[in-house]
Design a binder for these strands. Structure first.
Length: 334
DNA sequence: TCTTCTTTTCCTGTTT
DNA sequence: CAAACAGGAAAAGAAG
């Protein structure tokens, strides 16, 4: 597999700005949702490769940012910028997203149904769908600027929980190109403080409580650094680096990425089988940037989970079971 | 820097 | 015999 390190930088659109943008995404693996998409190609690989992405639209640095254009007029680049923003800002797990499905214009994006979003990005897809719809239809912009804030949290109802006072979820005047960001604000995706991010996430929670309720436990909504009382994660590490058991769980929950490496034996009981042990180890090794990973080592790490109740022993080869301290795998709690 | 926790690495022995 | 399991020990790595 090719890595971003050995890619030639000489491709259309491969400006330093774009590479910075793309490289800030985790080195995810993308498994086949489409016939032309290399299953192990990362986002960086995908979009820096002209074969896969010939139409980078040859934009220049002075071209508009996605926030300054209505979604229906977004270019493909705007679509990625938006995806990039959503991943960064709302801690969506890029692994959940099949970027091959988003190699489209804004008009096509706006034509996608909720089901199509979910097909392309699983639970993140539903989330992305709602974000997009809010941008299209309601004119919400997500930024913190006291001078620009036209409405505070109270406009969106009571009982939103801690942190809501920080919120400056913004609804602009209808005649003010409502969802636009002014040029001076266009640097904000990289400049937000943690507090801003908390505020923004709380804002989304206010808008889409059902989504947050449903997915608070999902790895696709990473919650590190967000002191939400709804956060059920026991993880003490960064959200961007999921634990092994979460990686395994997410693989089980993402059939399009699974490639038959793992399969459920008993979905209700949380019993699953490792079908391709070395492939699983390789994939985990790619995630951890460790090409010496083997199933033997991976399985040793899995066995440590017996102690903590993340996994329970199943006396069958290559079969494991989620324990009482594993969360986010149950179908009815997703 | 220290501490804690998770994961990696290596190992020996056992089971399938 | 190979592959997988079990678990001890030590070290590395990440994060607070």
């Amino acid at each position: 597999m090719t890595t971003s390190e050995d890619q030639s930088p000489a491709q259309p659109g491969g400006t330093s700005e774009q590479r910075v943008m793309l490289d800030s995404v985790t080195h995810s693996t993308f498994l086949p949702n489409t016939s032309f998409c290399d299953p192990l190609m990362s986002w960086t690989d995908l979009f820096s490769n002209e074969e896969y992405y010939p139409a980078f639209e040859h934009q220049t640095a002075c071209d508009s940012y996605w926030t300054s254009v209505h979604p229906e007029y977004w270019t493909k680049r705007h679509v990625w910028e938006w995806l990039q923003f959503c991943c960064d800002q709302y801690k969506l797990d890029a692994n959940c997203i099949s970027f091959c499905h988003f190699n489209i214009s804004g008009l096509q994006l706006c034509g996608m149904t909720q089901e199509e979003f979910m097909e392309a990005a699983g639970v993140c897809g539903e989330y992305l769908y709602f974000i997009l719809q809010s941008i299209r239809s309601q004119g919400y912009s997500f930024f913190n600027d006291p001078d620009e804030t036209k409405a505070t949290l109270k406009d969106y109802g009571e009982g939103l929980g801690k942190g809501t006072s920080e919120l400056s979820f913004f609804k602009a005047d209808d005649d003010d190109c409502s969802w636009l960001l002014r040029p001076s604000q266009r640097s904000w995706p990289g400049g937000l403080t943690n507090q801003d991010k908390v505020a923004s996430v709380w804002g989304l929670q206010a808008m889409f409580p059902s989504i947050f309720h449903n997915y608070a436990d999902s790895s696709c909504l990473k919650t590190s650094g967000i002191k939400s009382q709804d956060c059920h994660s026991h993880s003490r590490t960064s959200l961007q680096s999921s634990h092994l058991w979460e990686f395994v769980r997410d693989l089980l929950l993402s059939p399009e990425e699974n490639c038959g490496i793992l399969e459920w034996e008993d979905r209700e009981q949380g019993i699953f089988r490792v079908v391709k042990s070395e492939a699983l180890a390789k994939m985990w090794g790619q995630r951890k940037k460790n090409d010496r990973m083997t199933y033997e080592k991976l399985s040793r790490a899995l066995r440590y989970y017996y102690k903590t109740g993340i996994l329970e022993r199943v006396d069958r080869r290559l079969v494991y079971k989620f324990g009482k301290n594993a969360h986010g795998w149950q179908e009815d709690k997703l």
